[in-house]
């Protein structure tokens, strides 16, 4: 019996440019660069104070949670447009139940999370079993929940509940004198859990497998239907959790809260190096994506003369750049 000659397949050469971690490194590098720029330019205004960095988490914790949920969906090759509306709805629901119905927050929070998860489940069910594009189904979700916000109340409901107030004001001290908010801590915990689930559980690997090739995943005997529906359920849950964090952050419910936040979430995911066509991406990348979007806002604030709309333009430019990078990477892989 002859043994197969040891052939060294040509992988080294292509490995560098196709490493799936490369986009995350680029994003992280960009973040460091931008932060360095801020530190240099606004040295005199206390940019290097540790709290400026921590505020990125405090101000964008809710976005991070939503973007983590979106990451799950996008890795499978889907998309969830209902994120912003579901967040808005959660703020309204929470504010209404707490303020108008007098329920304790401890009871309201699980209800809100369950509603979000169930909404995601329903959308996932329709997407998978009726083979309707995720784009359309979650678009209907976007309308529906924004509508429900208005049905609850056309006016903003501000929350004066003491528990909410206390939670919102709580500072989690960190060494070096800086602090985080509860919401920021929760968002980091969500990130950690998501990382664990995606990389260390069978469910997580199925999410990647479906994004890589749904047909193959099916032929390999993987439970594709369950996984796809679960992914939208996760996104729904994350949106609701994000809504709760947003409620803490802003201490009110408003039918116009978080309008268009799904775009920020998707932008953060894409900038974080996740392929919109699915199959490749890391939640750590999403973290950097969120941080970059947050940093743009911070820099613009520090600059003072620049107006808020530059945030949108800069986000668009970043999106464009990263989509081009993705395109170049997938094109090379295709040949």
């Amino acid at each position: 019996m002859t043994t197969i000659s040891r052939v060294h397949w040509k992988t080294r050469r292509t490995r560098m440019s196709q490493d799936r971690r490369l986009p995350v490194l680029v994003t992280a590098g960009l973040f460091v660069l931008m932060f360095g720029f801020g530190a240099f330019r606004y040295q005199a205004y206390g940019f290097l104070d540790g709290q400026v960095f921590m505020n990125l988490f405090i101000d964008n914790g809710y976005l991070l949670v939503a973007a983590v949920g979106a990451t799950f969906v996008i890795i499978t090759g889907g998309i969830d447009l209902s994120v912003g509306s579901l967040i808005g709805f959660t703020t309204m629901l929470t504010a209404w139940l707490v303020e108008k119905q007098g329920l304790p927050l401890a009871a309201v929070a699980p209800i809100a999370l369950a509603v979000g998860a169930f909404a995601g489940y329903l959308m996932g069910y329709v997407i998978h079993h009726f083979e309707i594009e995720p784009f359309i189904v979650t678009l209907a979700g976007l309308f529906f929940f924004r509508g429900l916000c208005l049905v609850i109340s056309k006016e903003s409901i501000s929350i004066s509940d003491p528990t909410v107030d206390r939670l919102a004001q709580t500072h989690v001290p960190l060494p070096g004198g800086s602090f985080l908010s509860i919401a920021a801590v929760v968002s980091l915990a969500v990130l950690a859990v998501a990382f664990y689930v995606l990389h260390h559980t069978r469910f997580g690997r199925r999410v990647y497998a479906i994004g890589g090739n749904e047909q193959s995943a099916l032929l390999m005997g993987l439970p594709v239907a369950g996984t796809k529906i679960a992914v939208y359920t996760v996104s729904g849950f994350c949106s609701a959790l994000s809504g709760l964090l947003f409620t803490l952050y802003i201490q009110s419910g408003d039918p116009l809260h978080a309008v268009g936040l799904e775009l920020d979430a998707i932008a953060a995911v894409v900038v974080g190096g996740t392929l919109l066509t699915g199959g490749s991406g890391y939640v750590i990348g999403t973290l950097f994506g969120v941080l970059i979007l947050g940093l743009i806002k911070t820099l613009i604030q520090f600059e003072g003369t620049l107006s808020s709309w530059w945030t949108k333009i800069a986000t668009g430019v970043l999106l464009f750049a990263f989509i081009l990078i993705q395109r170049a990477m997938t094109a090379r892989r295709g040949t």
């Binding site: 799936r20 497998a209 994004g211 090739n213 193959s216 390999m220 199959g279």
Partner: peptide, 8 residues
């Protein structure tokens, strides 16, 4: 047509 997940 190879039925594998290229990304894994």
């Amino acid at each position: 047509e190879v039925n594998l997940c290229q990304n894994l």
